[in-house]
Design a protein around this nucleic acid. Structure first.
Lengths: 336, 336
DNA sequence: CTGTTAGCGCATTCAC
DNA sequence: GTGAATGCGCTAACAG
């Protein structure tokens, strides 16, 4: 491996000078600079990022903790996060995170952490706070009320679900199902709370809201509906899912049992992943602006990185309604 | 930041001993070990991975170069790669790669590189060969015949496509379309070659094979078909796509133009991503075993890591046919 | 403008 | 069994 020493020797200068030209520090005489540049070129010199990191105490790496990359929603955000991170000079270390992997997480050498539908344990948050490692989240974490609150970027689910509930009411539904994850630590928990609130705000009673647990995944959601449908008459007429993957599973199961969508059941997803437009019928959903969320997350993170630990506010983006065939279109739609 | 020094002082031993207990080296007296452990605990000591890497010349990080994470196929493999990498003690640095990002790639501190539908330039391969950084690929790279060949794991596309071609012939098609990327550097290029070969092997002439370019993505494939369909009568009756994302785009466009699948056109995808089972009709495809591929890729990589630069062979897995509604089922199916 | 030098935190050789 | 000392490759005072 060719090091800074080799370059210095070859160029006939000291090691410091090599450092200077690499980092554009102290005015180096143009002529000297050229010599150094030439030596670097000849030797195929590449600075050792590890050594640099040790010295500067920065790795230029960010950890991204995802929940389940099999969900195109998360994969899409990761895609955009990587673009944004690159623009800020960071690389991304990606991990599928679970609480029992905290120790591995702590051993990562990263300058910051981005949560993607994840929540860290209080103890872990404390650990990173001590180490001044900033953390931001995409989608509101379940423990937003921690002693070490994590700023997040999410859409206004209450508003979006409010629109959906109004729409469903306008369609004559007065008995609504919300399918969510089931685990209180899931990122979908916040959406569940928002939907419950929306129900209340629209004047429905809590008895008119039913919760179903689809585990956040296609297969679980499918099975959940199958079990209900197999018992005989399908009791629900309107289902809102906390993510699209479950909505797709629900649709699949409903079709399998000959339950018409939107004829017998109105179905709505959340997130608006590509797949929702390709099913039959296509699934109406709430669009989550992924590129924008990724962009804002990196802005937040860099603010934290620069301003020390000053408290930084979260960012609420706007979700938007995407009308599709899984719910009948009303002439004077509430969502024009 | 608490370092090994702090621990040593607190435990009343030398820094070396701390190192010993951390790495289970030299028999440390149990009693001393306990003292050290206690000190580490009290101080919340965490070893600095950067310093360790500098010393050991290993980062325990692998780079994964993906093409387009918006393709669930790649995201799925990434998911499995991360699991396998974790089992081998590696973290994953993920990058969307393009040839103009070589410089950034070279600056990564990684022990190895995994290509996901990517091919590196010859110069870049040489760079990593000089540095003894092993590289493996999932799906055969286009420059497999390089001076620094990259071992890969892929399925036997020739065999899989051979089956499809026989099936299409049995359905009476004698005029077949293969939709591929168009860029010779695309990972889909190898599949294109395989399909051409399959056509020849089954006794069809090259005039009976038409190539369409769908850019590897949903939107491009969709548009490609739209442009053809808009000119009037749709001239093709059988379309094999080099990946599922394009197949889904094709189906979407065909439906939009009222072209029946499988009535008027038989459609087959490649890879078998979840989405293919949710369209209407569902799209027949060739299953690519993602978990197994990820597993084999890490085995390959670790062999390279251990055995120096000894040449290592590639791994060919078996693809499997997935019959679905986009192609009529034959009574005595050729695939069982 | 350039050279000398002192660490960054760790693993390891060599004494004791 | 344990400690002292060296160096991984780099940056940044500081001195000249």
């Amino acid at each position: 491996m060719v090091t800074r020493n080799d370059v210095a020797r070859k160029a006939g200068v000291s090691v410091a000078v090599v450092s200077y030209v690499m980092n554009n520090k102290n005015n180096v005489k143009p002529e000297t600079r050229q010599k150094v540049l030439k030596a670097m070129e000849d030797l195929h010199y590449m600075p050792n990022p590890t050594a640099r990191s040790l010295k500067t105490q920065k790795t230029n790496q960010l950890a991204v903790l995802v929940n389940y990359l099999g969900n195109p929603f998360e994969a899409g955000i990761l895609l955009h996060l990587e673009e944004e991170a690159r623009a800020w000079g960071f690389s991304l270390v990606f991990q599928s995170y679970r609480h029992d992997r905290d120790e591995a997480l702590k051993q990562l050498a990263v300058d910051g952490i981005i949560l993607l539908g994840q929540s860290l344990r209080e103890e872990t948050l404390r650990f990173f706070a001590r180490r001044n490692t900033p953390i931001v989240s995409i989608t509101k974490p379940t423990n937003a009320e921690s002693a070490h609150p994590v700023p997040y970027v999410d859409i206004d689910w209450l508003e979006s679900y409010g629109k959906v509930v109004r729409l469903l009411i306008a369609h004559g539904h007065d008995d609504i199902v919300f399918m969510t994850h089931g685990d209180e630590n899931s990122a979908l928990h916040h959406r569940t709370e928002a939907f419950c609130l929306a129900i209340a705000e629209q004047g429905l009673s809590e008895h008119q809201l039913h919760l179903l647990y689809g585990g956040g995944r296609y297969e679980n959601a499918r099975q959940c509906i199958n079990e209900i449908a197999e018992t005989g008459r399908f009791p629900y007429t309107a289902i809102q899912c906390a993510n699209d993957l479950m909505a797709i599973g629900v649709l699949s199961a409903l079709k399998e049992h000959g339950i018409g969508v939107p004829g017998q059941v109105s179905l709505v997803g959340s997130e608006n992943i590509l797949m929702t437009s390709e099913t039959e019928p296509a699934i109406a959903s709430i669009h989550f602006p992924r590129a924008e969320a990724a962009k804002q997350a990196l802005i937040l993170l860099n603010q934290l990185l620069q301003s020390g630990d000053k408290a930084i506010g979260s960012i609420i983006l706007e979700g938007s309604w995407v009308q599709r065939g899984s719910i009948k279109h009303l002439p004077n739609d509430l969502h024009e």
